[in-house]
Nucleic acid binder design. Structure first.
Length: 772
DNA sequence: CGTAGTTTTGTTTTT
DNA sequence: CAAAACTACG
């Protein structure tokens, strides 16, 4: 990209802009990062701005890293003081410092989507909500969307129109409550809780407004409402003359907005000038990446979108080869066609693996390419399917670390409690959770008090030894200042985790062990890089760097063919790009075609297509398959409507149709694997007779219910205290019994504590002791 | 409590 | 066709 040594006039204008809001509409490959870094360099060198006062925000760690490197090159000395970070890590920094103002502890942990899901699941169970009717995924989506739009539970409830929404509102409320009990933020919280902090604590806001005088936001088209608000609040700086300056520079391309489904609000960029009337707008339309034909194709496609700012990419680059299109018989033929083409180009031009990318709509499509590339001896790597930190074994180890670091992190504790198996099952977990909730303890604290929990006798010793294990590791950590690397090793050893992996699934054990080793070296690297390495810091680092980390070992010289989704390809470029699976129903996806608002959803797919096309520098290959297996059955798709938007004369369709490409023997496994169709053994649903023959119903309780639990301990009939007595509680200390009301299964006791206020609790859980 | 067998479900996802 | 999520049994 550094082929242009000088800036073009528009780029120059952007670099020379000094004060006030600036909107840079930067088309794909128009050199925006260069403009951004040059502008930062100029601010420092010519306008005497302190590096410390500059904040540059990106979406991904990768982008932040790249920008840091380039800023370092452009600025040199002092560049390390410029804060270049993602939205999320910017917010984490702020929250680490000031979250106490909004009632969190500074050692908070961050919940990823997996943790969120577990939490929602637990809540559904607790609140006795039918998870058939209220799907976790749907609930999470609603909560996340609400947070993206800065809607808190109160407002959500107020705006809830029907029963369903009201229910969601109550789940949302409980969800937030429990996050707080766990002293945790989810990803969305990081942004909107920072906004909350700014809104409620003017001093903190003032501090940051004065600290960051110049703010730059990259990929601005992908910001959501919460992020917009965050930036809006921040970007108001009072200069020496007491004037308000809004030195906000945003860079984006509305045509590349592909995260609407994740809450990105396209109006943020389309209406930027309305929010900031004094905005200067600069369009960067000269492309330095692709050949004219590739751009013509891109322009032709995106031209069909209605909601966009008018612009047209052009280039002074040399005319290259035409854009190719091929139709194949099925996904196997397509994959082989791509493989062969790559081989041919490599032989013809001397191109390397790293010069190629295969881009597809869904991760599921990667499989046929992986197989084909392996067969044809091409080195390829699938990018981003399952991230390193989402692997089970990694999550387990991390959860141990989280438990050691933050005893309030219930999700982590519950995750590892029975991994490896300790004989503590769901029944015990439920009881402990109920007990903990009743007494406002964390799950871990509840577990530590298991001897007070009626009905959990069976798991008592096991739980105690779990607590002892965690405590001993925590002790090692705190007192012997164990390095994180050693701590991870300690966890592995003490829990016999490797053995667990081996007999859990010998097939995958080796891979998993390798992953854990990768985590150990990842920790070592973190400790080497970070001056103030800490367990909390490491966990945060892991949480915010979801991708990465995995590679490093083996012969990873970075030279491989990239297989990835279109979303993952944003911001990248490759000399040769294969845009595969161009079929209606796949791309654009059938979900967008059949959506409530198909026009806008298909426009988003079209932008995705535009992103894909504009990744290509030299040659672009489009392809589709006539038939493809999806969800286990054959589907016949017509070529994508996006293909029809490309003028015929721009497409080279001379590539022979590859309909009956021979099935290779590597596919044999698939052919011979035709399992007999499962017999229709629809269990003779009627279990009636079974019960009668020999089964003694009364012998074994088929479900442990609460009344059983209580009668076992005899709590129902005898209370050792009465109204007016002074009692003592594990957490709240001494208090006075206000009232005792007999409930169905138990007594509801109201106690007034001097330090904690009045609490209502169930006698069986509260474990109150009379004091004289 | 743990497991094996069954049923359900199915985009994209920077953090 | 797979993976994940349930369910029912030992």
């Amino acid at each position: 990209m550094e082929k242009m040594m000088t800036l073009n006039p528009e780029q120059m204008k952007a670099v020379m802009h000094d004060r006030g809001p600036l909107l840079i509409l930067a088309g794909a490959g128009s050199g925006k990062t260069r403009v951004l870094t040059q502008r930062i360099a100029r601010l420092i060198r010519e306008l005497d701005v302190s590096p410390y006062q500059i904040l540059a925000i990106t979406f991904t760690n990768k982008a932040a890293k790249e920008m840091k490197e380039r800023v370092q090159k452009a600025v040199g000395e002092g560049s390390e003081y410029i804060q270049v970070s993602t939205f999320h890590s910017t917010c984490v920094r702020i929250l680490r410092r000031f979250c106490e103002y909004i009632g969190y502890e500074r050692s908070f942990t961050i919940y990823d989507s997996d943790d969120q899901k577990t939490l929602v699941k637990n809540i559904l169970k607790q609140m006795n909500i039918d998870s058939k009717q209220f799907k976790e995924k749907a609930i999470m989506a609603r909560i996340s969307k609400a947070k993206d739009e800065l809607i808190d539970p109160d407002r959500f409830e107020a705006e809830a129109a029907d029963y369903y929404d009201k229910k969601i509102a109550s789940i949302y409320r409980e969800y937030q409550k429990q996050l707080k009990t766990c002293n945790a933020f989810d990803f969305d919280d990081l942004i909107c809780k920072t906004v909350e902090l700014f809104r409620t604590t003017p001093d903190v806001l003032r501090y940051y407004r004065n600290r960051f005088c110049y703010i730059m936001v990259d990929e601005y088209q992908d910001t959501n409402t919460a992020q917009f608000e965050l930036i809006r609040l921040l970007a108001e700086h009072e200069n020496e003359d007491g004037e308000i300056e809004k030195n906000l520079c945003v860079v984006g391309d509305d045509d590349q907005s592909i995260y609407k489904f994740r809450g990105a609000n396209i109006r943020n960029i389309l209406n930027f000038e309305k929010y900031y009337p004094e905005t200067k707008v600069i369009k960067l339309e000269q492309n330095y990446r692709s050949t004219p034909d590739i751009l013509n194709v891109a322009n032709a496609v995106i031209h069909n979108n209605t909601e966009r700012k008018d612009k047209k990419l052009w280039t002074a680059n040399e005319k290259g080869s035409a854009v190719h299109y091929s139709m194949y018989g099925d996904e196997t033929g397509e994959a082989d066609g791509v493989s062969l083409k790559i081989r041919e180009i490599m032989e013809r031009t001397g191109a390397e693996y790293r010069d190629f990318a295969v881009l597809y709509r869904t991760n599921a499509q990667s499989l046929s390419f992986e197989k084909s590339m392996r067969f044809h001896n091409l080195k390829a790597k699938t990018i981003g399917a399952v991230s390193f930190f989402e692997r089970r074994e990694i999550k387990d180890v991390i959860a141990y670390l989280k438990t050691i670091d933050n005893a309030k992190d219930d999700i982590a504790t519950r995750r590892v409690l029975n991994v490896p198996r300790r004989g503590i099952g769901p029944t015990t977990v439920d009881k402990v959770a109920a007990y903990a909730a009743q007494n406002e303890l964390s799950f871990y604290e509840g577990l530590a008090r298991i001897e007070y929990i009626p009905g959990a006798e069976r798991a008592r010793e096991k739980a105690k030894s779990f607590i002892a294990l965690v405590e001993s590791m925590r002790y090692e950590q705190n007192n012997n200042k164990l390095s994180i690397k050693s701590l991870i090793k300690l966890v592995i050893e003490e829990t016999n985790y490797m053995d667990y992996l081996r007999d859990d699934d010998p097939e995958t054990a080796d891979d998993r062990i390798q992953n854990i080793e990768a985590l150990v070296s990842y920790a070592a690297r973190y400790e080497a890089e970070e001056d103030e390495a800490s367990l909390t810091g490491f966990l945060e680092y892991c949480g915010l760097n979801a991708e990465e980390a995995a590679s490093e070992d083996e012969e990873d010289d970075g030279n491989f063919i990239s297989l990835m989704t279109l979303h993952n390809a944003k911001g990248l470029e490759f000399p040769y790009v294969f845009l595969v699976g161009m079929e209606d129903g796949l791309f654009p996806s059938s979900l967008s075609i059949n959506a409530e608002d198909p026009i806008s959803e298909i426009e988003e797919e079209r932008r995705l297509c535009y992103v894909g096309i504009t990744r290509a520098m030299k040659e672009l290959f489009l392809s589709s398959a006539r038939m493809r297996r999806m969800y286990g059955e054959q589907q016949f798709n017509t070529p994508s409507r996006f293909l029809k938007e490309i003028p015929r004369y721009l497409l080279d369709m001379s590539t022979p149709f590859n309909n009956n490409y021979r099935r290779q023997n590597y596919m044999d496994s698939e052919i011979k694997d035709k399992k007999p169709t499962p017999a229709y053994t629809k269990a003779n649903g009627d279990d009636g007779y079974k019960r009668h023959d020999g089964g003694d119903l009364s012998a074994e309780p088929y479900a442990l219910n609460y009344s059983k639990m209580f009668t076992k301990t005899g709590g129902q009939t005898t209370l050792s205290y009465a109204e007016g007595d002074t009692v003592s509680h594990i957490k709240f200390g001494k208090g006075k019994v206000i009232s005792i009301v007999k409930g169905g299964k138990d007594y509801e006791v109201t106690v007034e504590f001097p330090d904690f206020g009045t609490k209502k609790m169930l006698s069986a859980f509260a474990n109150l002791k009379k004091v004289d």
